[in-house]
Nucleic acid binder design. Structure first.
Length: 483
DNA sequence: TGAAATGTTGGGGCG
DNA sequence: ACGCCCCAACATTTC
């Protein structure tokens, strides 16, 4: 029997539309699916705590799917991927290694070096595009340079034809020899020691099956109203696909294909629905990867250099903590931050609002925001997180202009008009009427008394004056205005 | 994927 | 009938 091939799973934890897996199965009689876990070291941008929770359950799902096809997920854990792969190759006499490419700077560097080392020893290494519609270098401006503005970038993508027709999962797979040993998933220590994750399982079903179920639900109910409802944190109007996409439990091709099918079915039933605004969000994800690849320094430094000199506040630890804990006294902001803590996810509009408060009203460096999101989001994604924070701070590509400062009260009245979202997460003031729910500090004292609410006691008094800090931010942003 | 200040318009109440 | 004021509703400008 010929030597086996290794399929190295990373952020492509699915069996369908997985080009590396498909290619390996096509060419080899024996295929060994492996996941390699680099034990927590001090390197920057390792998975955060919430991501680890997701990864654990996603690996569990992948492992069980592989078992159903007659295969087995081999898990190895150690200090670095290179030596773990070397060890596995020595044990299995594998001659080929297959994987789908990653695009974080540290991954590019690592994978390049592993690929070279393996090739030097005569192994064949094949890598594929399994995570993006277009790889970052496939789309460029007419002058050959990378895009910095979304709309022309996305136009260029659409023009070159969005890829379609993703293939199905294999129906069966060759068995893995029992001599190949696997670590137990539990031994990776991905689940938190302090169990803050107890609500997570109600909310999420990590894994390929969960990803498709979530997408189907969205396409059945919400996609037709997406353009309007996507801005409403009080409504299930978004797809909630971010974490599934991040871990590659579903590919963007599969999402687009299924979306187009759903729109066709709607049409047959006389429902005029437009998925363009939804597909456009997939486009933003592509744009984020495009930027990360071409401007890797943006993970912790502003894209535009003149922003390095921005006069951020110096002593902000108390305000940062209040923001993190959902104790700023500004209900919509606190609702978002508590949703994040309790579910590992926050509605996108609310992400913009809490980010605006942090960077503009509190004048806390946006990098503090990326770090907190990185650790608490189940969908933490270096490309999207970087784009999002630089967008709000105004220092990145196609960013919000410096003067665009969200007012959490106005935003609450617009996008949480009945206060359902705030009431869900800030029960201590739920009794207040809509008018004051988003700004309890403005409520008449008698009203607060009536409901037994003492600001600063039952719920914090606001840590900043929105009007005054808005004006302060405008002044500071003036100082570094692009000349 | 803003907000607030300022400007314009037009209907209705009123003397 | 007319001018005047008020003010909501909308538009424009500015940050």
């Amino acid at each position: 029997m010929s030597n086996p091939a290794i399929v190295w799973f990373r952020q492509d934890l699915r069996l369908s539309n997985n080009p590396a897996l498909a290619a390996a199965l096509d060419k080899h009689e024996r295929v060994i699916p492996v996941f390699v876990h680099e034990q927590a070291d001090t390197a920057a941008w390792q998975h955060g705590a919430a991501s680890c929770w997701w990864l654990h359950h996603s690996l569990k799902a992948l492992s069980s799917s592989l078992r159903k096809l007659g295969s087995q997920l081999i898990i190895r854990s150690g200090s670095d991927s290179q030596s773990l792969l070397d060890e596995l190759i020595a044990q299995t006499k594998a001659t080929h290694v297959y994987w789908n490419r990653l695009y974080e700077p540290r991954h590019i560097e690592r994978d390049k070096s592993i690929k070279q080392a393996l090739r030097d020893r005569g192994l064949e290494v094949c890598s594929f595009n399994g995570n993006l519609l277009f790889e970052p270098w496939q789309i460029s401006k007419n002058d050959g340079g990378p895009f910095r503005v979304f709309t022309p970038f996305w136009k260029a993508c659409v023009k070159s034809g969005l890829p379609g027709h993703p293939d199905d999962a294999p129906e069966n797979m060759p068995a893995v020899s029992s001599r190949v040993k696997s670590a137990r998933l539990e031994s990776l220590g991905l689940l938190p020691k302090i169990r803050w994750d107890l609500n997570f399982s109600d909310q999420w079903q990590p894994g390929e099956t969960g990803a498709h179920q979530r997408l189907d639900t969205f396409l059945d109910h919400a996609v037709a109203r997406y353009q309007d409802d996507r801005n409403r944190p009080d409504i299930d109007g978004t797809s909630m696909m971010s974490a599934h996409l991040h871990f590659g439990e579903i590919s963007p091709q599969q999402i687009i294909e299924k979306t187009n099918q759903a729109i066709d079915i709607n049409k047959q039933q006389g429902i005029v629905a437009n998925a363009e605004s939804f597909v456009r969000e997939i486009g933003w994800r592509e744009f984020a990867y495009h930027l990360l690849y071409h401007f890797p320094h943006t993970v912790d430094r502003p894209l535009y250099e003149h922003f390095e000199d921005f006069p951020w506040k110096k002593n902000y630890s108390a305000n940062l903590r209040a923001w993190q804990q959902g104790q700023t006294g500004i209900p919509l902001v606190d609702a978002g931050m508590r949703q994040l803590w309790h579910t590992g996810w926050m509605h996108n509009r609310v992400r913009m609002i809490v980010a605006s408060l942090l960077t503009k009203n509190l004048l806390i460096p946006w990098q503090q925001g990326t770090r907190w999101f990185w650790d608490t989001l189940v969908d933490a994604d270096l490309a999207s997180n970087t784009l999002g924070w630089q967008w709000t701070a105004g220092c990145g590509a196609d960013a919000a202009p410096y003067f665009r400062i969200f007012n959490p009260v106005t935003q609450a009245q617009k996008f949480d008009p009945c206060g359902a979202y705030i009431r869900q997460w800030i029960p201590e003031i739920a009794a207040l009427p809509d008018k004051y729910l988003s700004q309890p500090w403005a409520a008449p004292a008698a009203l607060l008394d009536d409901h037994n609410i003492k600001l600063g006691n039952d719920y914090p008094a606001p840590i900043v004056d929105l009007k005054a800090t808005r004006e302060r931010a405008l002044e500071r942003y003036q100082t570094i205005k692009k000349s």
